[in-house]
């Protein structure tokens, strides 16, 4: 097992290199000389000083060298400073990451709980109205744009019925930490973000459960005289859950991208909102930092999913 995990960790390295290469290339392709941006406030700067500044920043070195230097700085979480706020990028991202993770983690947990239950139940009650409802929901969850769903949610629950806040993380001007207020603001984006997950997980669980309950070992379990409950939970559910673990890794990437849009719909101060602002302000260090950090989080997600898969399914060989 340890061997498998180490091997899997090694496999993440080329991916990480690929992402950093791409980010670096994009950064280089960005219009606007960083020196120009830095000296924007000092138009009377001499050409000699500019040359010296270029040297200090390492911009006169060959590209591969520059990449390695940049990579070294990234590894130490030194991502430079924001063009706008002049604060370290890693510090800014750190603040926002907590908000983003609160949102995505809550949405993921809720989506898993509801998705798995609905999927298994609709498989067991195949052909009933509940099953049809779950299937229709699964299709709609995949075809309706989530950001629009968010807008409609605001339209109905914030504008029309005034039940939920239309955005933000707390009520403006509210001092101190108010858990209830926080939760109140968390509900709308979580509901929308979880919708996609529920649609996908319920579909997977339904297909998988239908597959599993046909298997011989289920019949054997019934033949042994076990009650339905035991058969379902100890034999069927465990096996039906296995493929979901692999889907989970991929859905993390989707959740991340989805959060970017949903955060903007609900003015949620997370990394997605930050990315949007950074694009508007052409704040490249922040943008690149977010790209690398966001992608790294996704790689970690895939990694955890693969390891979890190896743990739940003893049939895969660790070689």
């Amino acid at each position: 097992m340890t061997k498998f995990i180490i091997r899997r960790l090694m496999l993440a390295i080329p991916t990480l290199i690929g992402i950093t290469l791409l980010s670096f290339a994009l950064q280089r392709a960005a219009p606007g000389d960083p020196v120009r941006v830095m000296t924007f406030a000092a138009p009377d700067i001499s050409p000699e000083e500019i040359t010296q500044l270029r040297h200090q920043l390492g911009l006169d070195q060959p590209l591969p060298m520059q990449y390695l230097v940049w990579l070294g700085r990234m590894a130490r979480l030194d991502m430079g400073r924001s063009y706008i706020t002049h604060r370290p990028v890693s510090e800014m991202i750190g603040e926002r990451m907590v908000n983003s993770l609160t949102l995505t983690a809550t949405a993921l947990l809720i989506a898993l709980a509801i998705g798995i239950t609905a999927g298994v139940y609709s498989a067991l009650k195949r052909g009933t109205w509940f099953d049809n409802l779950v299937r229709v929901f699964a299709v709609l969850g995949n075809v309706v744009p989530h950001f629009w769903l968010g807008l409609v949610f605001i339209l109905v629950f914030s504008v029309k019925f005034r039940l939920f806040p239309s955005g933000g993380i707390t009520t403006l001007g509210k001092a101190g930490f108010d858990l209830f207020d926080r939760l109140w603001h968390l509900i709308p984006p979580v509901v929308i973000l979880a919708t996609g997950g529920i649609a996908n997980y319920s579909r997977y669980m339904r297909t998988e459960t239908l597959e599993v309950i046909r298997q011989d070992y289920i019949r054997t379990a019934y033949a042994k005289g076990l009650v339905q409950r035991t058969v379902l939970f100890r034999h069927a559910l465990r096996n039906a859950l296995i493929p979901l673990v692999t889907v989970l890794g991929g859905s993390l990437a989707g959740l991340f991208g989805g959060a970017l849009i949903i955060e903007n719909v609900f003015s949620w101060p997370g990394m997605g909102r930050m990315a949007y602002d950074a694009v508007l302000q052409r704040d490249y260090p922040v943008l690149m930092g977010l790209l690398v950090i966001g992608s790294t989080l996704i790689i970690i997600g895939y990694l955890l999913a693969d390891i979890a898969y190896a743990i739940v399914d003893p049939r895969i060989k660790h070689e």
């Binding site: 080329p14 991916t15 690929g18 992402i19 791409l22 994009l26 392709a29 960005a30 219009p31 991929g250 990437a253 989707g254 991340f256 991208g257 970017l260 849009i261 990315a275 949007y276 950074a278 694009v279 052409r282 943008l287 690149m288 977010l290 790209l291 966001g294 992608s295 996704i298 790689i299 895939y302």
Partner: peptide, 22 residues
């Protein structure tokens, strides 16, 4: 496969946002 894994690890909308900005 390396190319696929790398690209899949970057949230599409995020990459698009960066490219659109640039």
């Amino acid at each position: 496969n390396w190319l696929i894994t790398t690209m899949v690890s970057i949230p599409t909308i995020f990459l698009l946002l960066v490219v659109a900005a640039l």
